[in-house]
């Protein structure tokens, strides 16, 4: 039996060298999904490049109109960061309910987005924010808008030889509220049956701008554009919220699997959108 090659670079340049040398190697960004896939024999690896000892990839930086997050920043760091809590409260909320505390201290935001699970916690908040996923290869840097990064279950816009370096996110204008919630079978650590995120800017009761993201109900975290169209420019009311929730339930594209039926996932999207809009609307009105 030949053991896989294990490499642990301490700089991004070195990691890219290794990746050129061993193009088949798997990138390790915390391993919390990778280990499970290996255990379940869903994956075989010929080599591992462990990115967790590269300090330049692990940071959260407030740059005035932007926030930069290093790809190897742990979920626990996102959850507890004062910058994230202030600027993107819903991203911190999503981090807080991702798996268990032990997992959150190992799992990284880069790993979470590259794994590209349709139910990924960070997916919905990220696609609602303006910004880029920045990837690096020997040939240079490439910027991918956050809402174009996810390509399918387990698939993202990352070419061979590329490593996700950072996520740069534009701050939301003053007065924008955010929320993230998920529905799961049990209250303790559990995978989302459906999740949703919402960004809302109200002028009084008038919806100036809304962005809604839905997770685990499509191959990738999806923007609920029809639902947003129902709300934008309208005055908030119970009837409008009801109509928006119904629109979201019908525009999502869930599948039936062993966790839930497509119909039940639609019901959950209805519940999530209704609750989120109501919560932000009532909070904003106060």
């Amino acid at each position: 039996m030949q053991d896989p090659i294990y490499l642990k670079p301490e700089t991004l340049d070195r990691a890219l060298d290794y990746l050129t040398e061993y193009p088949q190697a798997t990138l390790w960004a915390g391993g919390t999904d990778l280990i499970v896939h290996l255990e379940h024999k869903k994956l075989k690896v010929s080599g591992i490049i462990d990115l967790t000892s590269i300090p330049e990839l692990r940071f959260i930086e407030d740059c005035g109109d932007k926030v930069r997050i290093g790809a190897l920043t742990t979920i626990y760091e996102i959850q507890t960061s004062p910058v994230i809590k202030k600027e993107f409260a819903f991203l911190a909320q999503a981090a807080l309910v991702l798996a268990s505390w032990q997992i959150r201290t190992l799992a990284t935001i880069g790993g979470n987005i590259v794994t590209a699970a349709p139910s990924a916690e960070t997916g919905c908040p990220l696609i609602l924010l303006d910004g880029n996923i920045i990837v690096q290869s020997k040939n240079g840097e490439r910027k991918i808008p956050t809402n174009q990064f996810f390509k399918g279950p387990g698939k993202c816009d990352l070419a061979p030889g590329e490593i996700v370096k950072e996520i740069e996110l534009e701050k939301l204008p003053h007065g924008y509220q955010t929320i993230y919630q998920k529905e799961r079978l049990r209250r303790s650590m559990d995978i989302a049956l459906a999740n949703a995120a919402c960004v809302l800017n109200l002028d009084g009761d008038k919806c100036q701008e809304v962005r809604i993201g839905l997770g685990a109900v499509a191959p990738v975290p999806m923007r609920a554009v029809k639902t947003e169209a129902v709300l934008n420019g309208q005055v908030m009311s119970d009837e409008l919220v009801e109509k928006a929730a119904q629109t979201a339930a019908s525009e999502c594209k869930p599948i039936t699997d062993i966790r839930a039926t497509a119909d039940y996932r639609r019901d959950l999207i209805y519940a999530l959108v209704k609750r989120q809009l109501t919560a932000l609307w009532k909070a904003g009105a106060e």
Binding site: H40, L185, R186, R187, S188, M189, D190, I191, I258, R259
Partner: peptide
């Protein structure tokens, strides 16, 4: 057995 692990066979945790 389709849910042959604790990801999809859930037993209560403390919060439940």
């Amino acid at each position: 057995v389709l849910n042959d692990g604790f990801l999809d066979y859930r037993i209560p945790g403390t919060v439940d």
